[in-house]
């Protein structure tokens, strides 16, 4: 199963995603420059975290116009799995591949820390190995992860099981204190209706090795491998 990691100017978790897929999962992977217009031979695409174009405008607002995004849309439309992590998630929102938008964290500052996530939908290609209500620990590192959508969109997301991860306590309770950024419905990750496009604010690629003290992120990468 071959992975493509899209590199936008300002991406900075591209190497981390590459490392996990190549050296932890042992799978083939290539960097894809954002000016590419054709994507062939890939079985899964990852839009990594970082600060595309410096995030000087709204996060992801410029990257969505990168030439590669047309090809990403085609790939997703054809059912290919696309994973957007952090800035990658923000780009997917701006590109309209996922609904909603990101606001600044309610603290108005950047937050880097471990959070707990409740797995809400273990039936999409990225979460097959998990079980409903499973609690995972993952780091977040963002200034704009405060998910927002209008009430109708939120209702649709909930009705269709598109909310994949919610912030929670270590015990799985969805309290306000466990919500690090003020996201509506405690949303940490959502997928499209078909389930093949996932956007997630926490960084699974940062917790896939024992030496880093946490391997909870492997669940996502190992699940994708099952779908080949």
């Amino acid at each position: 199963m071959k992975f493509g990691v899209i590199v936008f100017p300002g991406s900075n978790c591209d190497h981390d995603c590459y490392h996990v897929i190549r050296h932890v999962m042992g799978m083939p992977v290539e960097f894809v420059w954002h000016k590419e217009t054709h994507l062939s031979g890939f079985d899964c695409l990852i839009l990594p975290g970082g600060f595309s174009y410096g995030d000087y405008l709204r996060t992801g607002a410029i990257a969505r116009f990168s030439p590669v995004m047309r090809a990403v849309e085609d790939f997703a439309e054809a059912g290919g799995p696309v994973l957007g992590i952090c800035n990658g998630f923000q780009i997917l929102l701006e590109a309209g591949l996922l609904p909603g938008a990101m606001l600044r964290n309610r603290s108005l500052s950047f937050i880097c820390q471990d959070v707990y996530l409740c797995l809400e939908n273990p039936h999409i290609p990225f979460t097959l190995l998990g079980h409903s209500s499973q609690v995972l620990r993952m780091p977040i590192a963002h200034g704009e992860g405060n998910y927002y959508a209008d009430p109708q969109t939120l209702a649709e997301l909930e009705a269709n099981g598109q909310v994949v991860f919610r912030y929670c306590t270590a015990e799985g309770e969805k309290t306000d204190g466990a919500n690090p950024n003020g996201s509506l419905h405690h949303i940490a990750g959502i997928c499209n209706r078909e389930g093949n496009v996932l956007g997630i604010m926490p960084h699974p690629e940062r917790c896939c090795e024992g030496i880093l003290g946490n391997e909870d992120g492997k669940l996502i990468f190992e699940s994708i491998l099952l779908t080949r």
Partner: peptide, 10 residues
């Protein structure tokens, strides 16, 4: 420290 990304590059 919470305002600094201290984990990037894994």
């Amino acid at each position: 420290f919470r305002q600094y990304d201290h984990m990037v590059r894994t």
